[in-house]
Amino acid sequence: MTLAAETPVVKKTERAPTRTGWLMRQPRAVASMCFLLFLAFIALSAPWLAPYDPTKPDFGALLQGPSAAHWLGTDDLGRDILSRLMHGAGPSLVSAFASVALGMAIGVPVGLLAGFLGGWTDTVISRVLDALLSFPTILFAVGIAGILGPSMTTGLIALGVLFSPQFARLVRARTLVVRQELYVDAARAFGASTSRILIRHVLPNAIQSAIVHAGLLLAIALLAESSLSFLGFGVQPPHTSWGAMLARAYAYMESAPYLMFPPGIAILLTALSFNGLGETTRVLLDPQSPKA
């Protein structure tokens, strides 16, 4: 048995001369990107590409298994599963991206202010962030979405608000470090205003960790949105999303158990790709992480 400490933890690969070159040698990163690009293409061209109208019932073909006419079968109203899957890709992807973007849009400025101003502002903001972080995500989102009226928008706003303290905390911590840097002192000595220092000097440094975190949050956002849609608090009919498709599959679990596989696997593969991409972003942008 070899000593664990001597075994190289990180497989040292020759660092490629360029980032693109390095990226191309990461099979998971390449696969993730290809899959997400493919998915984006499907989502955008679903109206032309989908073989059937995703909302049109066909009572002659209820709960059918996969066939030549319906590659992935039909649901309880005879609607084509493949077409619904293709049309559901858009709302699922948009919700994931929008909730993370909203979290970032709220969290980054708040974290920047808290870290840069310090003192009472920081104390108050930090306690509010602690409070927001203690709400169990989906529980809170269900409450908000239910009371404000279920829709894709309320769902993603609730998720965005709950994601924002994570960004704010990260950016605050980075800002605390960056504001001690000499170049910030120098900028101030040259008479730069606070807002200029914040936007031109502190923000570019602090935002990197936020971008890395956003990459890692996408999969969580996708799963959270699917959960909300599954419970009926997210995307509303006649639009469809993968979570909503799973809810229908759940209702017909005994008579048509195969219905749960297309949307479930679509969510799984997308989340895996988001994480693959997020992990790659982290390695590329975080100077401390090993390039393994």
Partner: peptide, 12 residues
């Protein structure tokens, strides 16, 4: 797999 799989789908 564990972080990417929809857990309620696993339940189903």
């Amino acid at each position: 797999f564990g972080v990417a799989v929809p857990y309620f789908w696993v339940g189903m």
